[in-house]
Nucleic acid binder design. Structure first.
Lengths: 208, 208
DNA sequence: TATTGTGAACCGGTTCACAGCG
DNA sequence: CGCTGTGAACCGGTTCACAATA
């Protein structure tokens, strides 16, 4: 029974997993909470608490076994099964995401793109075929789409999100600078460049 | 004297600012904490506490004056002055950011790009000229660069960050899936697609 | 009367110190 | 002996109820 894990812990677990993947590729066998924390910029205390939360365990006196811990976190985070992904909005950003190289690992499968611009529908970008947004529900069914990258212009963001929800998509990676209004059973992860920039601006101020 | 504002509050203030900008463009004069909260998906209590933190104030019985509040938040967040921005790494993603339309508002000025690929140095993407990464310090000085978008391949991310820090950049919008190690006086805001996706995967699991 | 502003209570994550154990 | 695992203390943000006020 997976106890409730704080969302901020989930974020950090994602970070640890990345470090572990690197370590495993480098042939490292064991990590201590100290080392893992240094790489992820988190205290060793925090690392241990997080890992207990995740029901992962190490060896006292030696540390955590990289391979085992990596597998445990992968599984906890749901990264052992395939996830079918679509790009909604094939503008500049959507196109750039088509061959963004870091999705390949981790079983995220880019299945298709959507756009409502007739000049794009039917085309392909790289290996990715573009369908008409009005056929969303059909392809969600056909390809078993789980997740959408939302890369439409801001003013279409909410209506596109509504369409996604109606089509049965439950996970949205929201690249538009908006707060989407979605039902509770739909999860939105914001990827907000503009918000990030504004936060930077605040902290760069002399008195920030 | 600006008291210490929690970083999570800063993030929400950025959200309120966005809503306020929209409201002002729609010609709305007043907002209540209730309305502002609904739009930003935050409780009205929270909105009020945050705004007190930000030393912004409203009118009892009526709400907050949109124009005033917008100005107060803009100023608090450091968005009244210009910020000079460079793109470091002119790959697919860097190129897509060149004409990402939502930076234009808010006084963020894209000044130039950097790359170490000779075939890109000297070229322009849109209006953006690309310089050699080894000339970073020179252009930081010359153009008064404040902020860098880091869009290089992962394996170059840390060394590029080091170069940025040495050149005097104090704010980095980190688009690479890595945790950068930087001095305390440098601020990094992560924009991490892959981490976002992994979080989605976790929450989309049946028992997530 | 409607809505802000705030002190107090609450809650939950973080830190700490140390016990547990290989 | 070294490092994990954990109960307890701490701290800070969130929630709440209500007083203040336009």
């Amino acid at each position: 029974m997976p106890r409730k894990i704080p969302s901020v812990t989930i974020s950090r677990l994602v970070g640890y997993l990345r470090v572990l993947t690197g370590l495993e590729q480098s042939g490292v066998d064991y990590v201590t909470s100290e080392e893992l924390g240094a790489a992820a910029r988190v205290s060793a205390h925090q690392v241990r608490k997080d890992l207990v939360h995740a029901e992962a365990s190490g060896t006292r006196g030696r540390g955590y076994t990289v391979a085992i811990l990596r597998r445990e976190l992968s599984s906890l985070l749901g990264l052992t099964r395939d996830w079918n992904v679509a790009i909604v909005g094939m503008g500049r950003l959507g196109q750039a995401l088509v061959d963004y190289p870091y999705f390949q690992n981790y079983n995220f499968r880019l299945r298709c793109g959507f756009d409502n611009d007739p000049s794009k529908v039917g085309r392909s970008f790289g290996a990715l075929q573009v369908h008409d947004t009005s056929d969303l529900a059909k392809y969600v069914e056909e390809l078993g789409l789980d997740i959408a990258f939302l890369t439409v212009p801001v003013n279409h963001a909410q209506s596109a999100a509504d369409a996604l929800v109606n089509a049965g998509i439950r996970g949205i990676l929201n690249f538009t600078p908006t707060v989407l209004q979605v039902p509770q059973d739909v999860r939105v992860e914001p990827i907000d460049f503009v918000a990030g920039l504004k936060r930077l601006a605040y902290y760069l101020q002399p008195a920030g």
